[in-house]
Amino acid sequence: RNRTTFNSSQLQALERVFERTHYPDAFVREDLARRVNLTEARVQVWFQNRRAKFRR
C-alpha cells in the first residue's frame, strides 16, 4: 500500500476533530471519513499517529 497524502482540507477537518477529542469513537471516525473522502481505517491510523506526535 502506498503512503496516503492528505490535502489541506482533509488535514483541517482531522485536526478540528482532534482538538475536540484525541479518541474519536467509531461513529465519529466513520462520519469524518465520509466527509473527507477517506476510509475509516486511514482516519483511525491518522489519529494513532497524531496522538503519538502529540505525546512527543
Results as ranks from 00 to 15, higher is better:
R1C: 11
R42E: 15
L38Y: 07
R51N: 06
N7K: 01
V36E: 11
R20S: 11
N49M: 11
F6D: 12
R34C: 04
D25I: 06
V45N: 10
R55M: 13
R55T: 10
A52V: 07
F27I: 12
R51S: 02
D25T: 08
F54S: 09
V43A: 00
F27N: 14
V36M: 09
N2L: 05
E15W: 04
R55H: 12
E30K: 08
R50I: 11
L14R: 01
E15D: 04
Q48R: 08
F6L: 15
Q10E: 03
D25G: 07
Y23G: 01
D25M: 10
A41Y: 12
R35W: 02
Q10M: 05
E19V: 07
T5R: 08
A41H: 08
T4L: 08
N7W: 01
S8F: 09
A13K: 07
Q10H: 07
E15Q: 01
R16I: 08
L32N: 02
T21Q: 04
T4E: 15
R16W: 12
L11V: 13
L11Y: 04
R3E: 12
V43D: 06
N7A: 09
R35E: 13
S9M: 10
R42G: 12
L11T: 10
R16Y: 10
Q10A: 04
R16V: 09
T39C: 08
A13L: 11
R29H: 00
L14H: 02
T39F: 00
L32M: 05
E40G: 05
L11D: 09
P24I: 06
R3F: 06
S9T: 13
F18C: 01
V36F: 13
R56W: 05
A52M: 12
F27P: 10
S9A: 12
Q10W: 05
W46K: 00
Y23R: 01
A13D: 08
V36W: 13
V45S: 11
N37R: 02
Y23I: 03
Q10F: 04
T39S: 12
D31S: 11
R56F: 15
A52I: 03
A33L: 06
R55C: 13
R51H: 01
R20N: 08
D31H: 05
V28Q: 13
R51Q: 04
Y23S: 03
P24Y: 01
N49E: 15
V36T: 14
Y23M: 03
A41I: 07
A13T: 07
L14V: 03
L14M: 13
E19K: 08
S9H: 10
A26I: 07
E40Q: 08
R35I: 07
R34Y: 03
Q48D: 05
A41D: 08
R50M: 14
Q10K: 02
V17F: 02
V36Y: 15
D25L: 06
L11H: 07
L14W: 01
R35M: 06
F18Q: 07
F54D: 13
N7Y: 04
